[in-house]
């Protein structure tokens, strides 16, 4: 290919990261000849590419890809992606704005002196055939539209979850395996010593159907015990605003927001959260927001389905007691 869209996808434990199919869907907005490249080792099983919906897939084969991915330094993944860009000469590169994608996209842009638009939630082609993107800025308080100009490479990172996965279509795509074993990282690199899993207490936020969250308005760590009790009754996960986490009232693993977790429960119940844009960025996919806050003008109420204006300390015990009495 020369010109066209190159999707740089992520592989996790031999499977496709959920963002890969989202990128395939996004790519259709800006062209119809997308190729997908994946950094894999020799154990990669092609069958996961069944119905992926792109014409061709380039497998960049290297023995150390898995280690580098979990290493969190993404140096080798960057080199492999740059090699793919060099060989395929796409006009646009699409990549997911994950931890890895953030690093790889910025390094590709620096290396190829390319334009870079990150964390985009919408893409289009303008009349001149250039890519136009929409991205949230100022913590989501505003949206900005950018257009690429000039003839250089266009690098776009896409916010995970902002596109539905592309529907399964076609059988196996054309697959090309490229031996990349001679690609290496120059100079010294950070070394991964170990990955430590820190399971937060209770139900994982991303999987819960109901999430109960507390914010700065709670005033201290103790009210989170009351929220834990409520979570137990509702089979809900416990969330928090960044302010509450930064204040040390609750562990950061509970943080919901732009730089915390993104959640999409059916019901999101907040106590003492004013609804700063940075927080709303993490819960805008919640289907029903229920807010309890003392300030009627609080931003959270402009996103909420149900609200109570009042002091959490009076509302919460009565709410919890009533929930306990429901069958």
């Amino acid at each position: 290919m020369s010109g066209g869209v190159l999707i740089v996808g992520e592989v996790v434990d031999g499977g496709l990261h959920p963002t890969v199919r989202q990128l395939v869907n996004a790519s259709e907005r800006i062209g119809n000849e997308a190729s997908l490249c994946l950094a894999v080792d020799s154990t990669f099983d092609d069958s996961v590419l069944e119905g992926i919906g792109v014409g061709n897939v380039i497998l960049l084969e290297h023995t150390d890809t898995a280690a580098d991915g979990s290493g969190g330094v993404y140096s080798l993944l960057t080199e492999l992606a740059c090699e793919a860009v060099k060989r395929l000469e796409p006009s646009s590169v699409l990549i997911a704005k994950t931890d890895a994608g953030s690093v790889i996209s910025a390094r590709i842009a620096a290396r190829f002196d390319a334009g870079l638009a990150s964390d985009c939630i919408d893409l289009a082609l303008n009349a001149d055939g250039k890519v136009a993107v929409t991205r949230p800025v100022h913590g989501g308080s505003a949206l900005a539209v950018y257009e690429f100009a000039g003839d250089g490479l266009q690098v776009v990172s896409v916010r995970p979850g902002s596109f539905e996965p592309a529907p399964v279509s076609g059988g196996l795509p054309e697959i090309e395996r490229l031996d990349m074993s001679d690609v290496s990282v120059e100079g010294e690199v950070p070394v991964l010593v170990e990955t430590v899993s820190e399971e937060g207490e209770g139900i994982p936020l991303e999987q819960a159907d109901v999430v109960v969250s507390g914010g700065r308005g709670l005033g201290g760590p103790e009210p989170f015990d009351n929220l834990r009790e409520l979570c137990g009754l509702l089979n809900a996960a416990l969330g928090a605003s960044r302010a509450a986490c930064d204040a040390g009232w609750i562990d950061h693993s509970h943080q919901v927001g732009l730089t915390g977790k993104s959640i999409s429960p059916t019901t999101y119940i907040t106590f003492g959260i004013s609804g700063a844009s940075q927080h709303m960025a993490g819960c805008s996919s919640a289907r029903n927001i229920v807010a309890i806050d003392k300030d009627r003008e609080a931003n959270i109420f402009s996103h909420a389905r149900y609200g109570v204006v009042g002091d959490w300390a009076k509302v919460l015990p009565a709410f919890t007691a009533a929930v306990a009495e429901l069958d």
Binding site: G72, D99, P190, V191, V193, E194, T195, V196, E198
Partner: peptide, 10 residues
Amino acid sequence: AEGGFQRIEC
């Protein structure tokens, strides 16, 4: 890192 943290020597 997702679900925890990583120790790295840099």
